[in-house]
């Protein structure tokens, strides 16, 4: 084993000994950082869950045209021809009432209830992709199509999904800003804790420098200390977030049991988990580096 590896092994051992020597203080420090990291981790999981849910919704501009229940296949063909002839219609998809019933059975929990019905309660329908998403133009389209024979209802319900998508994107940006602020807080916390360590060990640092320790040699154990603290805090934050998500899902399950749609908070994927753990370790390392470097400059400036 060469000297370089041994100096790193010594530094790691020194950092672990220092953490173990004050278990209470180390635990509190890790928990304080962990709570700061849990907030953006949880926020990220929530935003991604909502984003995934919104991603499953159709946000392209489209209008649904529902016919009356007594509309025949011939009526539907006439309406289809009229819709296709409209200048704002980009594409027209016919949804026969039988198919609509099958889809409803497949995508909801209402299959048993629907099976007991004597007749299909759903009408023939059309989904029309429009060339515009402008509310005024869509209102004109809606009015025009409501005049067609056998048309009962015309709706443009994609707008709420589109708005929700915009809100989740906005929440993502707010979350990124918050994460940056909390990362700065982690830097500050680690830096402060390491500074206390450096001040406590000032005599040892000065003697070490006199007998040949470089600034890197002095910094090394503190960098490991900061990185280990960050890593432990990152792992604790992920554990906290997992527990909170499990609790939220249990509550959401009760809350959404009466709806056809089930919403769940999904936990972060493995690459994001790794990024959180390594990111907090890196923040700890950086906080320690800034703090030790500043203290060494301060020591050098003092008699």
């Amino acid at each position: 084993m060469n000297a370089w590896i041994r100096t790193h092994r010594h530094a790691l051992g020194d950092a672990l000994r220092r953490l173990a020597a004050q278990p209470g203080a180390s635990l509190v420090a890790v928990l304080v950082i962990a709570i700061a990291v849990t907030i953006p981790v949880l926020g990220l999981a929530l935003v991604r869950s909502v984003d995934a849910a919104v991603g499953g919704l159709d946000t392209d501009p489209h209008v649904n045209v529902f016919l009356t229940l007594d509309a025949s296949d011939d009526d539907a063909k006439r309406v289809e021809a009229a819709l296709r002839a409209h200048p704002q219609a980009a594409a027209v998809r016919f949804v026969p009432r039988a198919k609509a019933l099958e889809e409803l059975k497949a995508t909801t929990h209402l299959a048993e209830l629907l099976a007991n019905l004597e007749r299909n309660p759903l009408p023939h329908a059309f989904t029309v992709r429009t060339r515009t998403a402008d509310p005024a133009q869509l209102a004109a389209v809606r009015t025009a199509w409501l005049q067609l024979p056998k048309v009962e209802q015309v709706s443009a319900e994609f707008e709420w999904a589109e708005k929700l998508g915009r809100w989740t994107r906005f929440a993502g940006r707010v979350l990124a800003g918050g994460a940056i602020l909390l990362a700065l807080a982690v830097l500050f916390i680690v830096g402060h804790l390491i500074r206390l360590q450096v001040v406590t060990r000032r005599e040892e640092i000065e003697v070490s420098q006199l007998i040949g320790a470089t600034a890197g040699d002095v910094r090394r154990p503190f960098l490991y200390h900061g990185a280990l603290q960050g890593l432990a805090a990152g792992a604790s934050a992920l554990a906290l977030a997992t527990g909170l998500i499990a609790w939220m899902n249990a509550e959401l399950s009760v809350l959404t049991s009466s709806y056809a749609y089930e919403f769940k908070v999904v936990f972060l994927d493995s690459s994001t988990v790794l990024a959180v753990a390594l990111g907090t370790a890196l923040l700890g390392w950086l906080g320690a580096w800034i703090s030790v470097s500043r203290e060494l400059r301060r020591f050098a400036g003092q008699p």
């Binding site: 000065e206 003697v207 420098q209 006199l210 007998i211 040949g212 320790a213 470089t214 600034a215 890197g216 040699d217």
Partner: peptide, 19 residues
């Protein structure tokens, strides 16, 4: 500074106040 620190490793210094 780093090279000077490394050089100090090859010079034994006995301090007046022991350090």
């Amino acid at each position: 500074e780093t090279a000077l620190a490394v050089l100090r490793r090859h010079i034994g210094f006995v301090f007046q106040d022991h350090k």
